[in-house]
C-alpha cells in the first residue's frame, strides 16, 4: 500500500458501520465474528461469515483492507470456535487476523501460514522481548500496543523492535493491562477473556435510591448519578470506589482517549497505524470520527494541521472530556 502519513484503522461493529467507515476514509477496518471469539461479543454486533465476505468485497472495492479480530482466549477443551473463525476469516479473504492467544497464534501459523497475523492489544505486549517472542514463533507482522505506554515508550519500542505498530488514537481508555483483567468476571462470573464481553449487559442494572440512580454490575454498585445526569455504563475500571474514606474514580475518570492533538508526535515515534476504538458505536459516530481523522491526516500529509478538528472531536468524548491517557507521563 502507498506510503501514508499514518494508516487509519477503524471499527466496524456491524456491516453498516463497516460501510460507513469505508465511505468516511478508513484505510482499514477491523471486525469480528458474532460469537465469543472476539473481545466485543455484545448483542447486535459483529458479522456472520456471509456478512464478512460481503463486507470484504465492499471494502476491497474501495481500496480499504479488512482485519478480523479473533482476540479472545479459548476455553480449555473448546478451541473449536477459534479455529473455525480462523478458517472462515482466511476463506473470506481477510487481509489479516488480530490474535492474542498463544495457542490460537500457533494454530494460525501452522494452518494458515499465508494469512497475515497482527498481535492484539489483548496480548499485552508492552516491551521488545515480548514482541520478539511473538515475531520469532508466529511471524507476527504488526503489534497493537497496549494503552499503557507513553509516547517516549512507544518511540523506544519501535526503534528497538523495528516492527509495525498500531496505537489507539480515539475511544475508551483501558487503564488495565488488557487481556489480563479479571475484574468483570470477579463481579459477574463471565470471563471477558474467553467470552469476549466485559461488563455484559445481562449483569448490568440501574436502580433508583433516595433520588439518585445507582448503576451496578453483578450485585455490586459501581456508581451513582443525580436524576437526569447521564449515567455512564458500569464497567469495573470506570466505577467510583472509596479509599481513605473518600469516593473517587480510583482507576480512571470518565474520559475518552483523544490523541488527535499529538499525531505528529506519534508519527515521529515511528508508529505505523492509528486505531479508532468503538465497535460498539453506531454508524453516525463512526462516520464523524473517521471523517475527522481522515481530514486531519490528509492535512498533516500536506504539511498543515487544522486546529478546528480538535474542538470538533472534543464533544464526542465520554462526559465531554478527553485525555491523552498514558501517552503523557503524568497520567500514570
Amino acid at each position: 500500500m502507498s506510503a501514508r502519513y499514518l494508516e487509519l484503522v477503524c471499527p466496524a461493529g456491524t456491516p453498516a458501520a463497516l460501510r460507513a467507515a469505508v465511505d468516511a476514509g478508513a484505510d482499514a477496518v477491523y471486525c469480528g465474528f458474532r460469537d465469543c471469539t472476539n473481545a466485543r461479543n455484545y448483542p447486535g454486533l459483529n458479522f456472520d461469515p456471509d456478512e464478512l465476505r460481503e463486507g470484504i468485497a465492499y471494502a476491497h472495492g474501495r481500496g480499504c483492507r479488512v482485519l478480523v479480530a479473533i482476540n479472545t482466549f479459548p476455553r480449555a477443551g473448546d478451541a473449536g470456535p477459534w479455529h473455525r473463525a480462523l478458517d472462515q476469516a482466511a476463506a473470506a479473504g481477510a487481509d489479516a487476523v488480530i490474535l492474542a492467544d498463544i495457542g490460537v497464534l500457533d494454530y494460525a501459523t501452522r494452518h494458515h501460514p499465508g494469512l497475515r497475523r497482527h498481535l492484539s492489544v489483548q496480548a499485552s505486549a508492552a516491551n521488545a522481548p515480548s514482541i520478539a517472542f511473538y515475531r520469532q514463533h508466529f511471524d507476527v507482522r504488526r503489534v497493537v500496543l497496549p494503552r499503557v505506554l507513553s509516547v517516549e515508550d512507544v518511540a523506544q519500542l519501535v526503534a528497538e523492535s523495528g516492527i509495525e505498530t498500531e496505537v489507539f488514537a480515539f475511544g475508551s481508555v483501558g487503564p488495565m493491562s488488557e487481556g489480563r483483567c479479571f475484574l468483570s468476571s470477579y463481579l459477574t462470573g463471565l470471563s471477558p477473556t474467553s467470552e469476549g464481553a466485559c461488563a455484559p449487559a445481562s449483569h448490568v442494572a440501574y436502580l433508583e435510591r433516595d433520588g439518585r440512580v445507582l448503576s451496578s454490575l453483578g450485585e455490586v454498585t459501581l456508581n451513582s448519578f443525580a436524576r437526569g445526569e447521564p449515567a455512564a455504563y458500569p464497567t469495573p475500571c470506570k466505577g467510583r470506589y472509596v479509599t481513605h474514606g473518600r469516593a473517587s474514580y480510583l482507576f480512571e475518570e470518565p474520559v475518552a482517549l483523544n490523541a488527535i492533538g499529538i499525531l505528529p508526535e506519534l508519527k515521529a515515534a515511528g508508529v505505523t497505524a492509528l486505531k479508532i476504538e468503538g465497535r460498539q458505536r453506531g454508524r453516525a459516530y463512526v462516520t464523524h470520527i473517521v471523517g475527522t481523522f481522515r481530514r486531519v491526516l490528509d492535512a498533516l500529509a500536506r504539511g498543515d494541521f487544522p486546529a478546528t478538528a480538535l474542538d470538533e472531536l472534543r464533544g464526542e468524548a465520554e462526559g465531554g472530556r478527553d485525555t491523552f491517557g498514558a501517552y503523557r507521563k503524568g497520567w500514570r
Partner: peptide, 29 residues
C-alpha cells in the same frame, strides 16, 4: 510477562499466573 519467556530462550522455568494459559494449545506450546 512474555518478555521473560523470550529472555529465557528455552531454559526451564515456571509460567506464572499472569501469563494467560487458558487452554491446552497454549499449554503445549
Amino acid at each position: 510477562d512474555v518478555a521473560t519467556l523470550q529472555l529465557l530462550a528455552g531454559a526451564p522455568h515456571v509460567v506464572g499466573p499472569h501469563i494467560n494459559v487458558f487452554n491446552e494449545g497454549t499449554r503445549d506450546f
